[in-house]
């Protein structure tokens, strides 16, 4: 109401009128501007979500009869070999996500002190992110196919064809090969994010640091790294839920065969090919529960460790400092008391 209060009018009546009109207008704006987004949110997120919860207790197809089966679908999620083992496939993508963050951090720090040719390297590494997932799938299907790109390169370096594994068929390596494609795709993008955060550091800080005799290594450790802590944490959280929902690489490249089916590939098959809608819904809910658990656990962890990941001082450091302050106060009081005596 401060807006209206600020405009104290000369005539009381016109003020009341203005108020009235403002109130009506306010309500109108709120309703009009929120109607469409809320309608969309309900229709495409919350109603489907509610239905998903409901369907997960039924044995049903898209069309036809449904029978209530209680928790049977949930039991199936954990007992069916193909579903449960697909959760372990996600671990490969999680490993990939961590490699990708590390590589992105490494290359971002190589490029932070503007170097010659930086824009070319930046562009080359970032561009894969813009290619659509299906195209990336084809590129790597070709890349890994027996006797094609990767094999030819390895042969050029003198490897024998017999020593080269079947990248997409050999179960000990095919998931790594697939996870590598998503590392290839996202490393450059992560690097751009980190570079952006590193560059946003006030340039005065560098000047002050170099006046104080800090070299580039010191600048990196004490100025740049702390500035990107929160964005690294954010990306870690995103990449964990992202790796649980990995879909495109196995879908296009191997179609989920040979033990490469991630959770979503299996779910997609169960929902749209086998039409076991109830089971697919239960799978979706289990996945959502896992993602929420991970997000909450990570948030709590980082809240404890760094105060939501944004402050530079960790909780432990704060506690130490406060203790030291208290001790200092006590010591000072004691000293005062001693003097008084």
């Amino acid at each position: 109401m401060s807006k209206q209060a600020a405009a104290v009018p000369k005539k009381k009546r016109s003020f009341m009128e203005l108020m009235k009109r403002r109130e009506v207008q306010r309500g109108l704006v709120i309703v009009l501007f929120m109607f469409v987004p809320l309608l969309l949110l309900m229709t495409f997120t919350y109603i489907p979500f509610a239905k998903m919860v409901q369907f997960s207790f039924y044995d049903m197809k898209y069309i036809g009869e449904r029978t209530f089966v209680g928790l049977q679908n949930y039991i199936d999620v954990f007992q069916r070999e193909d579903i449960f083992s697909s959760l372990f496939v996600s671990l490969y993508y999680m490993g990939g996500a961590i490699v990708q963050l590390a590589l992105a951090l490494f290359f971002a720090s190589l490029m932070v002190f503007k170097e010659r040719g930086a824009s070319f390297f930046k562009g080359a590494m970032f561009f894969p992110y813009l290619i659509c997932g299906i195209a990336i799938g084809f590129i790597f299907k070709f890349f890994y196919a027996r006797g094609f790109v990767l094999d030819s390169i390895l042969q050029m370096f003198g490897m024998n064809m017999e020593d080269i594994p079947m990248w997409l068929q050999d179960q000990s390596i095919n998931n790594i090969a697939l996870a590598a494609t998503s590392v290839w795709r996202y490393t450059g993008q992560n690097m751009i994010l980190f570079l952006g955060a590193m560059m946003s550091v006030d340039s005065d800080l560098y000047e002050a640091a170099s006046l104080d005799g800090a070299n580039k290594w010191h600048q990196f450790i004490y100025i740049i790294l702390p500035s990107i802590k929160s964005i690294v944490v954010l990306n870690l959280i995103l990449s964990i839920s992202g790796s649980l929902s990995a879909f495109e690489p196995p879908y296009v490249i191997t179609n989920g065969t040979m033990g490469t089916g991630t959770y979503f590939v299996i779910m997609n098959r169960i929902a749209h090919e086998n039409q076991k809608v109830g089971l697919a819904c239960a799978m979706a809910i289990v996945l959502l529960a896992i993602i929420i658990l991970c997000t909450v656990a990570q948030k709590l962890f980082f809240k404890y460790a760094f105060d939501d990941g944004t402050s530079d001082e960790s909780k432990a450091a704060v506690r130490k400092r406060k203790k030291a302050e208290k001790a200092a106060k006590k010591a000072a009081q004691r000293a005062k008391g001693g003097q008084a005596k």
């Binding site: 929120m34 229709t43 495409f44 109603i47 489907p48 879909f247 997609n268 697919a280 979706a284 959502l288």
Partner: peptide, 26 residues
């Protein structure tokens, strides 16, 4: 509440809800 509704929605992976979104679309 509305802000939280949007935030929670961002946690739900897109492909997961498509099973039932398909029905609504239909």
């Amino acid at each position: 509440i509305i802000q939280n509704l949007f935030m929670f929605a961002s946690l739900i992976p897109g492909i997961a809800t498509q099973v039932t979104v398909y029905q609504i679309m239909f």
